[in-house]
Simulated scan of single mutants.
Amino acid sequence: MRWNWQQTDWPKFRFDAEALTPLETRFLRQGGIVIGSVQHLNGDDRDVLTVEIISAEALKTSEIEGEMLDRESLQSSIRRQFGLTTDRRRAGPAEQGIAEMMVDLYRGYDAPLSDERLFLWHAQLMQGRRDLKNVGSYRTHAEPMQIVSGPIHAPKVHFEAPPSDGLATEMETFHAWFNETAPDGAHPLPALVRAGIAHLYFESIHPFEDGNGRIGRAISEKALAQGLGQPSLTALSVMIERRRKDYYKALELANRDNDVTDWLLWFADTVLEAQLHTQRWIDFLIAKTRLLDALRGKINPRQEKALLRMMREGPDGFKGGLSAGNYTTITGAPAATARRDLAELVGLGALTRTGERRGTRYWLTLGASPAA
């Protein structure tokens, strides 16, 4: 018996509850801080936060699977889904599909899980695909569903999922477990434990021809949102993408046994880091609003345009810092005007300057009070 689903105790997962209790406590505490912080955002900034986190999750959950999406098209599609102002940019099938799935996940976080919901998500994800036999339904092929790597003549099998002919029973059991372990279910589980097991459990069944990873991570986010009683703005896929090699290694090890303590510890640590990422975004948006309020009436339209462009990059900042040449490109200002505008922004405390001559760069100053 090589895989977890072949063990006699499948799907009765075991874990060290005592080891996970302090992480669950931290998750609830950090979740409360995030929820409270969001209340300090104005309506526009709440929209920005929602679109940014959802679009980042969509981008990164796709990148984990090797699919690169267009960020601007994706954000435009998400804004359209929420009825927000957009640039009417045309989105491709992949961007449109995952935007629809992520917004449905956000809006319907508290709904029970079912075949119908997963079929909808799969159909949305697979928009435009013509190479799959089953879209919006579970796989039916007779050959083994395997995760492999290496050359064709000597592939390495990392995992083999249950046969297609047993999926109806497997998924019926999975849905029952997920709904019964919800906070209002018959057998509730702590949020991190439930979200971590849900992901591993679903990935072990691997019910679709493609898209299992993206849907599995969405199911985890659904569980986390239900645990907090709020639509999920946890940047889970952002963190998983940063730890992609460790993620695949942890999943591979967990697929061999039904004692899932090590997997849950890894997963919980990743979720906690994801919460901190979201909090950084909230802190950034609050600081951004305060900075712009303090500068009102003190800067010219060119300077405002440049600051807003820098702020679009979020808490990680303008990559490499802003140069005078960048400023000219953004604003159309001549070189001498650009240098003067930038010096004024430094004097006002909006920017800090590093380097000299061609190496001079400017960085947003958020959190400090601009000069009077």
Rank of each mutant, 00 (worst) to 15 (best):
W363S: 12
E356C: 09
L292N: 02
K298T: 09
L295N: 02
K288C: 10
F318E: 01
A338P: 02
D316R: 15
G332I: 05
W363N: 13
L364T: 06
M310V: 11
Y327A: 06
A294P: 07
E356T: 15
T289Q: 14
A350Q: 02
T352Q: 13
V346P: 01
M311T: 09
D316F: 14
G297R: 11
R340W: 01
M310D: 02
K305P: 00
S323P: 08
R340P: 00
R357N: 13
R309P: 00
G359T: 14
L322S: 06
Q303W: 01
P334Q: 09
G349R: 04
M310C: 10
L345A: 03
T329P: 02
T360A: 10
R357W: 12
T289E: 13
G321T: 10
T328K: 12
L322G: 01
R353M: 10
G325C: 08
G325V: 12
A287G: 05
D293A: 15
N300P: 06
T337W: 00
T289L: 13
K288G: 04
G355K: 09
I330S: 01
Q303A: 07
K298Q: 13
Y362K: 09
T328S: 14
A324L: 09
P315V: 14
A350D: 00
L351Y: 05
R361P: 01
D316C: 11
K319V: 14
T328Q: 14
R358I: 13
K288I: 04
A324G: 11
L292G: 02
D316M: 14
L292Y: 02
T289F: 11
E313Y: 15
G320E: 06
N300F: 06
R358W: 09
K319C: 09
E313L: 12
R296I: 12
V346M: 07
I299Y: 06
T337L: 00
A333M: 08
M311V: 12
T331D: 01
L348Y: 03
G320P: 07
E344P: 00
L364S: 07
Y362A: 04
L322Y: 10
G317D: 04
G297E: 09
Y327N: 07
R353G: 00
L348T: 03
K319T: 14
L351W: 08
N326W: 13
R309N: 02
G359K: 15
Y327D: 05
G355N: 06
G332C: 10
P315C: 12
P301C: 10
A335I: 04
R339V: 02
L322H: 10
L345D: 00
G349S: 08
L295W: 03
L364V: 08
P315Q: 11
R290V: 10
M311G: 03
